[in-house]
Design a protein around this nucleic acid. Structure first.
Lengths: 396, 396
DNA sequence: GGTATTTAGTATATACGTTATACTAATTAA
DNA sequence: TTAATTAGTATAACGTATATACTAAATACC
């Protein structure tokens, strides 16, 4: 109906076709100009002019020729992954992890830094120091720092551009994280997202959901929340709190939750709930112990995990009804419980939802490891890489 | 990341700018070419060439000049609402309503036809007869029947293009409604959507949510389901069953539901639940009686409505957590309960959700009347009106 | 080993919608 | 009556895709 968006002119045409070209390179690299033309439907000349521009600016490199079929052998082109760096930051309650990668998301460096103060200014000052050093160290790269993706343990209001709510980092509430950081490091592109959103993007970019057009990522550790990726973008809602399902009611008048409500999903299906079922503590029994218990078939542990899976299933049934995803990915600590958990989830789902609504649905546990969340931060940066390359190619 | 979408060429540029022009006309009509240019940012000449084409094809008409300010008075242009007709069809369990409108959605005709057989072929045959007659009657209109929007009491699988599930019209399961109808009326554009989706679109197009960029529509009569409108389109999910929240669990191990599960929202928050609370039947007490009871302050009725509102609130808290909408519209029969219902919904919401997540949220009851659902069907057609006009303008 | 064939990629002229400039049209202010 | 203002049109220039013709470099086949 209402169209908004850019008007049609040569600028736009050029940008659109450059977008086709560069995104095809990113997706199928390395490949020839001819292949780009056939994959995109663009004219050979159009492809050549775009690719030549990328090459000239150093964002794309020409590899040698590879003669496989007959005819003149194609010249392969590939992303110059050294043209810039990405930074992903995983903020936890008392530390943050900084991950530095190349343009393919390959780790160049990482560091873990204690959050000595809960004052958000401590964080932005620490981060901006690191970023300025990174800018200096990588000054020779054409794009420098392409962007920073910060993953916070709470929500970020995309309308007011401030931290919206962080249960365990209340001091950060209403803090304009993005602009404060951009103020300290001029020209820097900063993304801030909750862990659930970053997890979803990371899974699409780096994980087992690369082909998924519609994924729901459930991050389930001490809390529980959900990120929805659909049609190439996150479903954020109006302010950026869509997917706050840890506090959705699955049992009205049920257990009292820290949020003030009752019967919240995360009271039944998080790691916290698992320890309650096991009547033990993380000190007495680590997550690794629980995983080991599953593997050796410990009946007390497996039955608790099954019960947890049942509650997880009830919430996931609501997720399926709400979002109708093609893929559900379980992330966070619960992902470690693997197939045992998935099985009991499926048992519950089949009881709750008619079979026709489960057709084609996949559920799996994430296996992105330790740096998974920080990689989610990097994926926020990488999903705008093509735009960055185009804009820089058209400059000067 | 991956771009898909059309490649950039003159065709696309023309279409984009025509889209800007026509959608601006539809939104601000009537208005001058100069106004279109300033609103869209398009060049005067570009606007003129687009508008002239529309005028030449008869989709847009020139009204007289209106000299308000100084300078040459502008020539106003407006949509020619007589250039075609839209058809919306509301399918209920034992009848269907056909609504015929002009291109502004203004009613030209309507009819109610009994569903004498539950065989879906009876329906498509009946409909195609009506449509062929409409085609003949309106043959002089440039666009003829722009499209048909069918609203069904169930889901429609957008991947397989068949009816997915209709609790009260099981005979329609797996029926390829769209293609069967298109087969009988060649060239016809057919849309099929569940009532919840149509309600959302109708509310955005005709109702109280015209400015809403993100709306959740809750249709709540004997069943309950939800339509999500966000960023200019419906959130359908992979197969088209997103928003099936009537069967989301708000009370695990609660009341047994017809779907086989337990504690489904619609067991607590639908009209059916209201009659259970009132310990009466629609025969003994009509909806109108209930509404009258609220108005005169009948304590038994108001307390039941408040209890219903509480359960509605619990489910809506889940809706807010899931979709983070800016506007929630209550439709269906429950909408008749008005402010009394809304008040108790708000009371429950404030108990369940921190205030910061309720900022800016609006909740209201739909007041589109009898033909509201059929108008939702029309809105499916109207939201592609600009595309239709553009394609027809570029033909021949 | 030479020639035809095939595929990759480039050079050049053309096509076409936007856009800037200059224009006409029609009104009000002074 | 003249200047100023706004609406809209005519025309030529501009820029990007595109078609055509070309060069480049390999294999297949006789």
């Amino acid at each position: 109906m209402h169209s908004n968006g850019p008007i049609g002119n040569y600028d736009l045409v050029k940008k659109i076709n450059m977008e086709h070209a560069i995104s095809t390179i990113l997706k199928y690299r390395p490949l020839s100009r001819a292949k780009i033309a056939s994959l995109t439907g663009l004219n050979k000349m159009t492809v050549s002019s775009c690719v030549d521009l990328f090459v000239q600016k150093g964002f794309v490199v020409e590899l040698g020729t590879t003669g496989t079929s007959r005819g003149r052998p194609p010249t392969l082109v590939d992303l110059n992954e050294k043209a810039g760096i990405c930074v992903g930051i995983d903020v936890e309650i008392n530390q943050f992890t900084v991950l530095v990668t190349d343009l393919l998301g390959k780790k160049l460096d990482s560091m873990i830094i204690p959050l000595q103060s809960k004052d958000p200014f401590f964080f932005v000052d620490a981060i901006s120091g690191i970023l300025r050093k990174l800018e200096k160290d990588h000054a020779q790269r054409q794009l420098g720092i392409v962007g920073v993706g910060i993953v916070i343990p709470g929500y970020y209001n995309i309308r007011t551009d401030v931290v919206d709510y962080s249960a365990n980092l209340q001091e950060w509430n209403d803090f304009p994280l993005r602009s404060e950081l951009a103020k300290r490091v001029p020209g820097l592109t900063v993304h801030v997202n909750p862990a659930s959103y970053a997890g979803a993007m990371g899974e699409v970019h780096f994980g087992g959901a690369k082909a998924a057009d519609h994924l729901v990522y459930v991050t389930s550790s001490w809390g529980l929340s959900v990120g929805v990726y659909s049609k190439g973008e996150l479903f954020t809602g109006t302010t950026g709190t869509a997917g706050r399902l840890g506090h959705s009611t699955i049992h009205m008048n049920g257990k009292k939750c820290t949020c003030g409500s009752r019967g919240c999903w995360e009271m039944y299906a998080s790691i916290k709930a698992l320890y309650e079922l096991l009547e033990t503590t993380p000190q007495e029994m680590t997550i690794a112990d629980i995983v080991a218990g599953i593997e050796r078939g410990d009946s007390r542990i497996t039955s608790s995990v099954h019960e947890l899976g049942h509650y997880q299933g009830i919430g996931l049934a609501n997720v399926i009804n709400a979002y109708n995803p093609r893929v559900i990915c379980i992330g966070g600590l619960l992902a470690l419980l693997g197939p045992t958990l998935i099985n009991s989830i499926w048992n519950t789902l089949r009881e709750m939802i008619p079979a026709r609504f489960l057709l084609g649905l996949e559920i799996y546990c994430s296996d992105l490891g330790e740096l998974g969340v920080a990689h989610g931060g990097v994926s926020m940066v990488l999903r705008q890489l093509s735009t960055t390359i185009i804009e820089n190619s058209l400059m000067g």
